[in-house]
Write a protein that binds this DNA or RNA. Structure first.
Lengths: 333, 333
DNA sequence: CTGAAAGCGCTAACAA
DNA sequence: TTGTTAGCGCTTTCAG
């Protein structure tokens, strides 16, 4: 790989001048610019970003750490983040923590050690709780899962409200024994459970015995738990799930038991997916504004990169209830 | 952030010794090791990877560039790659080229400039064709989409064969007018079309007029094209698609037209997804061994990092035909 | 086994 | 406007 010295020699100028031209500084003569650019072309010179970053203590890559790359929510958000940062000349490096706090810490450290310009991430419950102690030294924006800190930018949705509305929707449609599958790795799971319980209470209902559970937010866990719940002697008449992986697992369980939705059991969940509207009946969901979450988070991050002292902001977006067949009104009421 | 100098001062030793301890060198006394580690603990020292990488010309991150982060095939592969490299102490940075050759080049350059240990990527057709000219200077493994070069490690599946079997499966089940939707950004699309055409020919059939098309490998394009094909005066009796995004789009189109699968039109595609078995009827697919592709690619890459002169290898895996309801035998034959 | 010193490739003061 | 020089934080010779 050609180095800046090679370019400088070829153009017959100093390395400082090459650097100035390449970083678009003002005070450079037209002739200098031309000669340097010619040499750059000829040598196909690509600046070494490692050296640049070490020296300038800056960089033009931002990092995104998602909890689970197989959850379409996060891939949709990442598309949005990418679009936004790309417009501003940043590249995006994505890491998958896979709901594992260890990996999350690893990547958090790694990204800082790589000197990224900023980090967007959705913390597991464990790191959400210890967030203030993490002392992250680069601009950071939290998405999806709140942390206990007013010192950091966050982009969230109102989970309590969303789960409340989703639960109430079931109740209004005549469902009474509503089971709940909540992601155990995140505060999101907690908040959604809260909304669920509040809605039940407001209607003088309670979660059916042992049918509201925190579980790993994965397809397999969703399926296994749903199978168990459906085998209960007093099975639920509806199941609420808090992410699309759990929804999928639950639907698999329902099918495996040979049950019909919504006749035997209603089903509602979170997040729009490729398949939510393709299965029969289509699944009722709270659609999160993934693209907006991503662009907003990226926008906040880049603002903070420019101006680290700006006061932190917490943006709360709303989910959108999309009622479909899987929670159709119960017959006979 | 504490620097190595701070650790050295605190421990009362030289920076060289700190470096030796941290990189696990042999010739260090037990006492030295102890003192250094104590200082590291106290200061919560994290080595600056940028500086380390600049100096040592090595790094412990590998890059993965995928064509489309929303295609479950790639997220599944990336999980596998991550698992493998993680075991060996590497971190994985993922980038999404979004089927855009420009972005792909950007990330390819970026990763090299960031001095990653190696790169795994699936090239768009454009870069697949110009691959030999790309002169990538770090170890590279190509996945999913072959390039014209015997100088590079690749992990692929036999696309011609897979598409042949998938097409033949339709023919054996009595379908005769088989439309085809092929991804236009990749050689994969080409190869699968070849298998499709060979199978048709072998059975003295031909693609229905204007019903075999190269299109953007996205849901929207799949849906739009399928709608158009289904509106043809002699519509197909089956549609073959070459990735799960196109399958989803096609299924949406079928539903929107109020058609039934497989009665009105059969449907087959590639890649196992969350939803492929959840829709009614379930979709017949060629399941690619995503996990094996990922671990194999990661393994080859790390081998090459250790030994850059090893002769290149081309690993060809087989897809697995999973016959389901969407291609059930036509009635009346 | 340990320390001093050079230098990875670049940018930012400072001079000229 | 341009060049010279120092040094970002680390690893790696080379002496000792």
């Amino acid at each position: 790989m050609a180095r800046i010295k090679d370019v400088a020699d070829r153009a017959g100028v100093s390395t400082a001048s090459v650097s100035r031209v390449l970083s678009g500084k003002e005070n450079v003569s037209a002739e200098m610019r031309e000669r340097v650019m010619a040499a750059v072309e000829e040598l196909d010179y690509q600046p070494n970003l490692v050296a640049r970053s070490l020296r300038s203590q800056r960089s033009s890559t931002v990092g995104l750490i998602v909890s689970d790359i197989r959850n379409p929510f996060f891939t949709d958000v990442s598309r949005a983040v990418e679009d936004t940062v790309h417009e501003q000349g940043y590249a995006l490096f994505l890491c998958n923590a896979d709901e594992d706090p260890e990996k999350e810490m690893l990547y958090l450290e790694r990204m800082q050690a790589q000197n990224v310009a900023g980090i967007i991430y959705s913390p597991t419950r464990r790191s959400a709780e210890s967030f203030p102690d993490l002392d992250i030294s680069v601009p950071t924006v939290i998405i999806d899962r709140a942390v206990r800190s007013s010192e950091v930018d966050m982009v969230l949705i109102d989970n309590v409200d969303a789960a409340y509305r989703l639960t109430e929707h079931l109740i209004e449609n005549g469902y009474r024994r509503i089971a709940g599958l909540f992601g155990k790795a995140s505060v999101t799971g907690r908040e959604r459970r809260q909304g669920y319980e509040e809605a039940l209470q407001a209607h003088h209902l309670a979660p059916p015995d042992r049918q509201a559970r925190y579980i790993a937010p994965k397809i397999e866990a969703g399926k296994a738990t749903a199978l168990r719940i459906l085998a209960h002697d007093r099975p639920p008449d509806a199941i609420l799930t808090t992410n699309s992986l759990l929804t999928a697992g639950t639907l698999m369980a329902i099918r495996e038991r040979g049950l019909l939705t919504p006749d035997d059991v209603g089903l509602v969940g979170f997040d729009e997916t490729t398949w939510g509207a393709l299965v029969e009946p289509a699944v009722t969901i709270i659609a999160q504004p993934t693209y907006e979450i991503g662009t907003t988070a990226a926008g906040l991050l880049l603002q903070r990169v420019e101006n680290p002292d700006r006061s932190p902001r917490k943006v709360i977006l709303q989910g959108d209830l999309v009622a479909r067949g899987s929670s159709a009104p119960r017959l006979g009421i």
